[in-house]
Simulated scan of single mutants.
Amino acid sequence: MVYKAEDRGAGGTIVSGVSSSSFKDILDFLNHDVVDAGFAIEKGETEDHDAEAEWQGNGFRGRWSIRESATCSGETVIQVLSTTE
């Protein structure tokens, strides 16, 4: 569920949401399915309960971050910044 979207003009758009999918499943999706769809991870880091990466592809670039929810066990908070290249 998306709960916030913020237009930062030339800086891009930030979308924040929460998912009932596990942190591990979302991390796997971002590192494999999204990469297979043509988005390359440029750099990032993964820890036990959060991860982030810069990415580019298909005419866009940005950053994503995910973390286990501190308030709802089993949910994952997702934030994506995207802008055109």
Rank of each mutant, 00 (worst) to 15 (best):
residue 1 M to L: 13
residue 1 M to Q: 13
residue 2 V to P: 02
residue 3 Y to E: 07
residue 3 Y to W: 15
residue 3 Y to G: 10
residue 3 Y to D: 11
residue 4 K to R: 14
residue 4 K to H: 13
residue 4 K to C: 11
residue 5 A to I: 12
residue 5 A to Q: 11
residue 6 E to R: 00
residue 6 E to N: 04
residue 7 D to R: 00
residue 7 D to C: 02
residue 8 R to L: 15
residue 9 G to P: 07
residue 9 G to K: 07
residue 9 G to A: 06
residue 10 A to M: 08
residue 10 A to V: 11
residue 10 A to R: 14
residue 11 G to I: 03
residue 11 G to V: 02
residue 11 G to W: 10
residue 12 G to P: 07
residue 12 G to L: 10
residue 13 T to M: 08
residue 13 T to V: 14
residue 14 I to V: 15
residue 15 V to H: 00
residue 16 S to R: 09
residue 16 S to E: 10
residue 16 S to Y: 11
residue 16 S to I: 05
residue 17 G to Y: 10
residue 17 G to L: 13
residue 17 G to V: 07
residue 17 G to H: 11
residue 19 S to H: 02
residue 19 S to W: 02
residue 20 S to P: 12
residue 20 S to A: 14
residue 21 S to I: 01
residue 22 S to H: 10
residue 22 S to E: 06
residue 23 F to P: 03
residue 23 F to W: 03
residue 24 K to N: 15
residue 25 D to V: 01
residue 26 I to E: 13
residue 27 L to T: 05
residue 28 D to F: 02
residue 28 D to G: 01
residue 29 F to H: 06
residue 29 F to S: 02
residue 29 F to P: 03
residue 30 L to K: 06
residue 31 N to S: 13
residue 31 N to P: 03
residue 31 N to D: 13
residue 32 H to G: 11
residue 33 D to P: 03
residue 33 D to T: 12
residue 34 V to H: 04
residue 34 V to Y: 09
residue 35 V to K: 12
residue 36 D to A: 15
residue 36 D to K: 15
residue 39 F to L: 15
residue 39 F to H: 12
residue 39 F to T: 07
residue 40 A to N: 13
residue 40 A to E: 14
residue 41 I to N: 05
residue 41 I to H: 04
residue 43 K to Y: 14
residue 43 K to T: 12
residue 43 K to C: 09
residue 44 G to P: 09
residue 44 G to D: 06
residue 46 T to K: 11
residue 46 T to P: 03
residue 46 T to A: 14
residue 47 E to F: 10
residue 47 E to S: 10
residue 47 E to N: 10
residue 47 E to V: 00
residue 48 D to Y: 06
residue 48 D to Q: 12
residue 48 D to W: 03
residue 48 D to T: 10
residue 49 H to V: 13
residue 50 D to C: 07
residue 51 A to V: 02
residue 55 W to K: 03
residue 55 W to F: 15
residue 56 Q to K: 14
residue 57 G to P: 04
residue 58 N to D: 07
residue 59 G to F: 05
residue 59 G to W: 04
residue 60 F to M: 12
residue 61 R to A: 07
residue 61 R to G: 00
residue 61 R to S: 06
residue 62 G to K: 06
residue 62 G to C: 07
residue 62 G to L: 06
residue 63 R to A: 00
residue 64 W to Q: 03
residue 64 W to P: 02
residue 65 S to F: 08
residue 65 S to C: 08
residue 65 S to P: 01
residue 66 I to V: 13
residue 66 I to W: 06
residue 66 I to A: 09
residue 67 R to N: 05
residue 68 E to G: 03
residue 69 S to W: 01
residue 70 A to G: 05
residue 70 A to E: 07
residue 71 T to H: 10
residue 71 T to F: 11
residue 72 C to D: 00
residue 73 S to G: 00
residue 73 S to W: 00
residue 74 G to E: 02
residue 76 T to N: 03
residue 76 T to Y: 02
residue 76 T to Q: 04
residue 76 T to I: 05
residue 77 V to Q: 09
residue 77 V to N: 08
residue 78 I to D: 08
residue 78 I to C: 12
residue 78 I to V: 15
residue 80 V to M: 09
residue 81 L to C: 01
residue 81 L to D: 00
residue 81 L to R: 05
residue 81 L to E: 06
residue 82 S to C: 03
residue 82 S to H: 01
residue 84 T to F: 07
residue 85 E to D: 14
